[in-house]
């Protein structure tokens, strides 16, 4: 704790005290996340197919939130590492404690071929930032096998690709017509 400025006696200058609190949380990753993380390290993107509605979730949570039924290891399938940008924005980073981003970055939603759920918050590379658009065909940019790790996984969120994939790059193919992904937009 550090006293920043002022004193209680100066009526117009309130005393401001900074009280920095550090709390540490130790997460134990759920089995679904461990299998997904191991898949990324092995170069695979694992999805979970709901036994009831057949939707395929990338970064499966162990249950389908639409049907509220459990999805176990038997529901797991490989999903392609190519897909389409269904929506995006460009973020001008705001500064705060812990923020390491300083330059504007693309924040895109990517629908992988064969998946029903989009992956939000993906970076798009290999194309100028202002040329990013909906419908863009993209392919995962994998880390070299020796650099893959358990980065990005936690018990508060699912589907982080950071352990194996740094982002997506344009495949050079023509754009996907909107009708083909409209249902999944953003």
């Amino acid at each position: 704790m550090t006293t920043e400025k002022g004193s209680a006696s100066a009526a117009d200058e309130p005393m401001v005290v900074d009280d920095f609190v550090a709390l540490t949380y130790h997460d134990r990753l759920p089995p679904e996340t461990v299998r997904f993380a191991d898949g990324l390290i092995a170069g695979r993107i694992i999805g979970q197919r709901c036994p009831q509605c057949r939707r395929v979730y990338v970064g499966g949570k162990g249950f389908c939130a639409m049907c509220v039924v459990v999805m176990g290891p038997e529901s797991e399938i490989d999903v392609a590492d190519v897909g389409v940008v269904t929506g995006y924005t460009i973020i001008t980073p705001v500064r705060y404690y812990g923020q390491t981003k300083t330059e504007p970055f693309v924040y895109a939603s990517v629908l992988l071929d064969g998946a029903s759920s989009v992956l939000g918050g993906q970076e798009i590379t290999g194309i100028a930032i202002d040329a990013v658009r909906e419908g863009l065909r993209v392919r995962a940019v994998w880390k070299p096998p020796e650099a893959r790790n358990y980065e990005g996984h936690s018990t508060r969120g699912w589907g982080s690709l950071a352990g194996g994939i740094v982002g997506f790059e344009w495949t050079g193919e023509p754009d996907v017509p909107r009708e083909q992904y409209k249902e999944f937009a953003v």
């Binding site: 929506g87 995006y88 924005t89 973020i91 980073p93 705001v94 705060y96 404690y97 812990g98 923020q99 390491t100 981003k101 970055f105 924040y107 939603s109 918050g121 909906e134 508060r156 937009a185 953003v186």
Partner: peptide
């Protein structure tokens, strides 16, 4: 941002919806 880097703020979350 839950204390993590790369926070997008509420504006970043809603901007793609607005674009649509």
């Amino acid at each position: 941002a839950g204390g993590r880097s790369g926070g997008i703020g509420a504006g970043g979350a809603f901007a793609p919806f607005i674009r649509k």
